[in-house]
C-alpha cells in the first residue's frame, strides 16, 4: 500500500522536490527560483545545431487537453520533444469524454499504456489535482502531472514563464511595481501571476479592471485594486495584459468590446503613463483592438514574442525537473 504524502504540499515529494506542478500557490520561493534558474540554460538549447537533449529519452508524455488550446499545447509538445520524450497528443474534447468515459477512467487507461507524465488542461478547476491524487492513491505516483490550465484556478507554467520574462528584463523583483490589467475574473493566468509575484517578493502588485471583471475579495490575494486604468498604470515597471475571455462570459458583464477597448484597452497614450522602460506582456492569444492596441502589441516595449520563446525553456525545465524527481 502506498502512503499518500499530502501532509505538506501535494506537489512536493518527501525531499521537498517538485513531483507535480499543479499550482504556484504555496510553492516555496526556493523551488520557484530554482525553476527559473534551471530554465536559463534551456533557453540556449534553441541556439544549437541539435536542439535536443536526452533527459526524457524513452519517456512518454501525454498531452491531455480537455479544452482547446493551440499555443500551450504546442509549446508543451516542443518542450517535451526537445527533451527527447515521445509525445502523444489527446484532444479529449473530441474523444472518449464525449462517449461518456470519466476523467479517471481516461487516466487509468493512459497509465496502462505506460505514461510517464500527463500534461493536463481542463475546464474544471482542480482536475489536475484530482488526477495526481488518484495516481498517488493507486500507487502510481511515479507518473508526473503538469497543470496546463484548469478552469479559473491556475496556469502555473504561464505564471512561471511570465516571471522568467520579468526577471530577464528587470533582474530584481523586489523593487518592482507590476500591473495586471483586464479580465481578472475569468483568468487562471492572473491568479498564477499574482501568487508568483507575491512569492518572489514584488512589493506592489496592482490589479486594474472594471468591477464586473474582478473576483470578490481579490484584495486578499495581496494586490491593490484600481478601477481607473490611467491611475493604475502610473509609474509601473511591468504591464501584464490579460485576454478578454469572450468564451467564458456569461450575462452582460460588459457593454461591448469597443466600449471595453475605450476604457481598458492598452493604447500608446495610456502606456505613456507607465515608466519609460516599462515592458508590456500578454499571455496570448491577443485580441487586437479589444484589450491591446496594435501599436502597443507591435511596439518596442512589447515582450510578447520573447514570452513565447521563454515559455518553451520554462516548460523544458519543469518537465526535466519532474522527470528526474
Amino acid at each position: 500500500m502506498s502512503v499518500m504524502n499530502t501532509g505538506g504540499n501535494p506537489q512536493l515529494n518527501r525531499h521537498g522536490e517538485l513531483k507535480h506542478l499543479l499550482t504556484i500557490e504555496g510553492l516555496p520561493r526556493e523551488v520557484l527560483t530554482r525553476i527559473l534558474d534551471t530554465a536559463a540554460p534551456f533557453t540556449e538549447v534553441a541556439e544549437r545545431e541539435v536542439k535536443k537533449l536526452p533527459l526524457l529519452r524513452g519517456k512518454s508524455v501525454f498531452n491531455l487537453f480537455f479544452e482547446n488550446s493551440t499555443r500551450t499545447r504546442t509549446t508543451f509538445e516542443i518542450a517535451a520533444k526537445r527533451l527527447s520524450a515521445d509525445v502523444i497528443n489527446l484532444n479529449i474534447s473530441t474523444s472518449s469524454a464525449n462517449k461518456g468515459e470519466t476523467l479517471l477512467d481516461t487516466v487509468d487507461n493512459l497509465a496502462a499504456m505506460q505514461a510517464d507524465m500527463f500534461v493536463v488542461r481542463h475546464a474544471s478547476s482542480g482536475a489536475p489535482y484530482l488526477i495526481a491524487q488518484h495516481l498517488a492513491a493507486t500507487d502510481r505516483d511515479h507518473i508526473h502531472v503538469v497543470n496546463a490550465g484548469d478552469g479559473r484556478h491556475a496556469h502555473p507554467t504561464q505564471g512561471l514563464l511570465d516571471m522568467y520574462t520579468i526577471r530577464h528584463y528587470k533582474k530584481d523583483f523586489t523593487q518592482l511595481t507590476v500591473a495586471i490589467v483586464g479580465d481578472v475574473l475569468h483568468s487562471r493566468v492572473a491568479r498564477s501571476q499574482i501568487h508568483a509575484l507575491n512569492i518572489l517578493g514584488v512589493p506592489e502588485i496592482r490589479v486594474i479592471a472594471p468591477k464586473t471583471l474582478l473576483p470578490t475579495g481579490v484584495e486578499r490575494l495581496g494586490v491593490r485594486v484600481f478601477n481607473d486604468m490611467r491611475e493604475g498604470l502610473r509609474g509601473v515597471d511591468v504591464v501584464m495584459m490579460l485576454r478578454l475571455q469572450n468564451e467564458r462570459m456569461q450575462g452582460a458583464l460588459l457593454p461591448s468590446t469597443q466600449e471595453f477597448f475605450k476604457s481598458w484597452g492598452l493604447t500608446p497614450e495610456k502606456l505613456a503613463l507607465a515608466k519609460p522602460d516599462a515592458i508590456v506582456m500578454h499571455p496570448g492569444p491577443m485580441n487586437r483592438g479589444v484589450e491591446i492596441d496594435s501599436a502597443v502589441a507591435d511596439g518596442k516595449q512589447a515582450v510578447i514574442l520573447p514570452q513565447v520563446t521563454f515559455g518553451i525553456a520554462v516548460r523544458m525545465a519543469v518537465m526535466a525537473m519532474l522527470g528526474g524527481n
Partner: peptide, 22 residues
C-alpha cells in the same frame, strides 16, 4: 555544463545549479 547529458539523471535528477554552456 554537462548536466543535460549526465547518465545518472534518472537516479539523481537534474543537477541543481545547471549553468549555460557557451
Amino acid at each position: 555544463d554537462v548536466s543535460f547529458h549526465r547518465d545518472d539523471y534518472h537516479q539523481r535528477g537534474l543537477h541543481a545549479n545547471t549553468r549555460t554552456s557557451q
